[in-house]
């Protein structure tokens, strides 16, 4: 039992933060994201004996979390954070440009369809290879590659469009002064 407890604590310490982040990007709500992580670990605790290979823990936990999210999604359809978007728009001239760019990107990632977002998160945040993403998401490697490409392409495109608009607005502000 002590070994089981220690192992569980190690799992929490190693993966809870990134699981929370994964959940956040999937469900788009901090409170819901924490609930998802709690539920993931609750289920992990119940079936921790079934985890034979410790190296597989990462993928195992993500699989549990994704299932929980799917279950949750059947019940609720979380709304996008419209309020935060408006806040970003209002505050653009008060924020350092770098921070503002990141906030814009934040909202763009939130808007990205899950089919593009998930492979991107698994690659960038979790360090999964193309094959590992394909296995986790039950896709062909070619599909994963296409989605990774499109995810970045869309973000770049949106990001550049947003920045063009932003630059125009800032120029207009400067002209007024």
């Amino acid at each position: 039992m002590q070994h089981k407890n220690r192992f569980f604590e190690q799992l929490v310490s190693a993966y809870a933060n990134d699981l929370y982040r994964y959940a956040y990007w999937l469900c788009k709500q901090p409170t819901l994201a924490e609930d998802l992580v709690q539920e993931t670990f609750a289920r992990a605790w119940k079936s921790i004996e079934s985890l034979k290979d410790e190296k597989a823990a990462k993928a195992w936990l993500i699989t549990i979390l994704r299932r929980e999210n799917a279950r949750l999604y059947e019940k609720y359809q979380p709304q996008l954070l419209e309020i935060e978007e408006s806040l970003v728009a209002d505050d653009y001239h008060n924020e350092p440009s770098n921070k503002l760019e990141k906030e814009q990107l934040h909202h763009m990632i939130l808007k990205l369809p899950d089919e593009y977002k998930e492979p991107l998160i698994l690659q960038v945040m979790w360090g999964f290879s193309g094959d590992e993403i394909a296995k986790e998401l039950d896709l062909k490697l070619a599909t994963v590659n296409t989605r990774l490409f499109r995810a970045r392409q869309q973000l770049k495109q949106l990001f550049n469009d947003e920045n063009t608009v932003l630059n125009l607005m800032m120029e207009q502000e400067g002209a007024k002064k």
Binding site: S13, A16, I109
Partner: peptide, 19 residues
């Protein structure tokens, strides 16, 4: 930049609450 943005802040005490 994408990686930095994905790295959202984790609520304080999350680990403790899970344990």
């Amino acid at each position: 930049t994408i990686s930095d943005v994905l790295d959202v802040e984790v609520p304080e005490g999350l680990h403790a609450r899970i344990l």
